[in-house]
């Protein structure tokens, strides 16, 4: 599991609106890559193109290539459904299915992939995914209770368990801690650290300290003015971005002079 992603000359459009222009980068496997930047700079939009979730929004389309271990996600015969089974996603706000129990939430993706599961295999898989998301000890006695009864941080870890239960190659996280309190945030950050042993993790965050804490490489997105497309200003090791950025805009942003 865990694959490398090469993005080549990617432009993203919503209808006539040019949202992000000309991104080229390489995302290494078994590492955490963070995207930072001011609101509206296209970092979340770019993240969504890595599993073709931007196509859910009417008019969303791209120009360019995203290669996962050399295979173009936007190739002619590639089904977005297959892409999403390999590239999991965790959203800004925890979104467990309210009509399902904790266990059924974890297994939701597996059931979609229409594999028949014996109940013993289902139990085992649910436990493995919940352990992987550091949630098992907190919920093992109430697996049949609704997922919406958990705290926000627990719900977010439940969503992570649901995403890793289908054993994706890559895990995308769109500001996963923005709706959580500091303690839950810490729990998720620890979890991200564990996850990179097995997965390629890509995270969008508004919190620069968080990017500095969890990521190996960081990309800074910016836009020249509202209405203009966002662009990738600088992409380097997290160390370099925060201590020794090569672009003036990056330095201004991380030192808090704007954004």
């Amino acid at each position: 599991m865990s694959k490398r992603i090469d993005v080549k000359d990617l432009d993203i459009y919503y209808g006539d609106f040019h949202a992000v222009k000309d991104v080229t980068m390489t995302i290494e496997p078994r590492s955490v890559t963070a995207f930072i930047g001011p609101s509206g700079c296209g970092k979340s939009t770019f993240l969504r193109t890595l599993n073709r979730m931007h196509e859910v929004i009417p008019g969303g389309r791209v120009d360019g290539e995203v290669l996962m271990d050399g295979e173009n996600l936007y190739g002619r015969n590639v089904d977005p459904v297959d892409v999403r089974r390999q590239v999991g996603m965790v959203f800004q706000r925890p979104n467990p299915f309210p009509t399902m129990s904790i266990k059924e939430n974890v297994l939701a993706g597996v059931r979609l992939n229409s594999r028949r599961l014996s109940s013993a295999a289902a139990d085992e898989l649910a436990e493995k995914a919940l352990r992987g998301a550091n949630l098992w000890n907190e919920v093992k006695d109430r697996l049949d209770k609704p997922g919406s009864g958990l705290s926000g941080g627990q719900q977010q870890r439940l969503c992570i368990a649901r995403a890793i239960a289908i054993q994706p190659e890559v895990l995308l996280m769109d500001e996963p801690c923005s709706a959580l309190d500091p303690i839950s945030t810490l729990a998720i950050e620890d979890l991200i650290n564990d996850l990179k042993a097995d997965y390629t993790v890509v995270i969008v965050t508004h919190n620069m300290q968080q990017a500095a804490r969890v990521s190996d490489r960081t990309g800074f997105f910016n836009l020249e003015a509202t209405g203009r497309p966002g662009e990738l200003v600088e992409f380097d090791t997290t160390q370099a971005i925060f201590n020794n950025p090569s672009q003036r805009a990056t330095e201004d942003y991380i030192s808090g002079r704007f954004g």
């Binding site: 859910v56 999403r84 959203f91 299915f97 009509t99 939701a108 979609l112 995403a163």
Partner: peptide, 28 residues
């Protein structure tokens, strides 16, 4: 909620599977 629909799609649901997992149970 759009969030639930996107949750299903991001798990690799087809449109019909998304409707079965997110829309129908929610609307029942």
């Amino acid at each position: 909620p759009r969030l639930h629909e996107e949750a299903a799609l991001a798990l690799g649901a087809t449109k019909w599977e998304m409707i079965r997992t997110a829309v129908l149970p929610f609307g029942m």
